[in-house]
């Protein structure tokens, strides 16, 4: 199980909808797609990398082989996938506090949806319908969503500054440099791993430590032979 990859958490929630009310949810999502202003509330939740809702009709589960039994379901299902920073509680609560109305609209008439306020039944609902991720990959485990966004600003500002100051010398350069720093003060910042960067990283770390302590140099590799041999020496490396 690995719901966490670096600073990102993967949430999967599946909830049933009565087939004859599914059009309501589809209509609400359609409005959200057509009028992006309706997603303003979601945008304020800057901890989200990417999120999506997928509505699967009761007859729409992929059927690829005559040998595969056909699903016979009573309900349509809505799947929600989110990639966010922070803990489960922080995320779920921030939804409740920031966009309770929007949340209730998206889950409108999902069966037994408790509404986003009060918190405890909402937590129970999400927890009950949540499915654990087995493998989660993140291309930038050390970065939060806000880091990715601010990095873009840093990059473009840096390139522009470098071009603009090629022929500027002395105190003028320093003035412009200080102005650059002032302009970027909300976007700067070092990125480091969180204490447990990912469950997989944690497992690798544990295994490497065990091997370093228990096996002689050049001894047998771990089961499956997937860990790199330089594992013993990684702590000696010092990167920039």
């Amino acid at each position: 199980m690995s719901n966490i990859a670096g600073k990102a958490y993967a949430m999967n929630v599946i909830t049933p909808i009565r087939p004859y009310t599914t059009w309501v949810n589809k209509f609400i999502f359609w409005i959200a797609v057509k009028i992006p202003g309706t997603l303003k509330g979601l945008i304020t939740l800057s901890l989200i990398h990417y999120a999506r809702w997928v509505i699967i009709g009761k007859d729409q589960f992929p059927h690829l082989d005559p040998k595969q039994p056909k699903e016979e379901l009573n309900y349509t299902y809505m799947m929600f996938f989110s990639n966010f920073n922070g803990s489960w509680d922080q995320y779920v609560d921030s939804f409740t506090f920031a966009i309770p109305g929007g949340l209730d609209l998206f889950w409108k008439w999902n069966i037994r949806y408790s509404k986003s306020v009060p918190l405890t039944p909402f937590h129970d609902y999400i927890r009950y319908n949540q499915i654990e991720t087995i493998h989660y990959y993140n291309a930038y485990p050390l970065a939060a969503s806000n880091d990715v966004k601010s990095a873009k600003t840093v990059k473009s500002s840096l390139i522009k500054f470098e071009q603009d100051t090629r022929n500027v010398s002395g105190d003028n350069f320093l003035k412009l440099y200080n102005a650059l720093l002032r302009g970027l003060q909300h976007d700067m910042g070092d990125m480091y791993p969180t204490p447990i960067v990912s469950m997989s990283a944690h497992q690798v770390e544990r295994r490497q430590k065990w091997h370093a302590a228990n096996l002689p140099e050049g001894g047998a590799g771990p089961t499956g032979g997937t860990a790199p041999k330089e594992a013993h020496g990684h702590s000696a490396k010092k990167g920039k």
């Binding site: 599946i14 069966i111 037994r112 949806y113 408790s114 609902y125 991720t133 087995i134 989660y136 990959y137």
Partner: peptide, 19 residues
């Protein structure tokens, strides 16, 4: 970002809801 999991079954929260 990507993820994998196995969907064993669908779920239904059994407590009374808010509808």
């Amino acid at each position: 970002l990507c993820r994998y999991f196995v969907l064993d079954d669908v779920y239904l929260e059994s407590l009374p809801g808010g509808s």
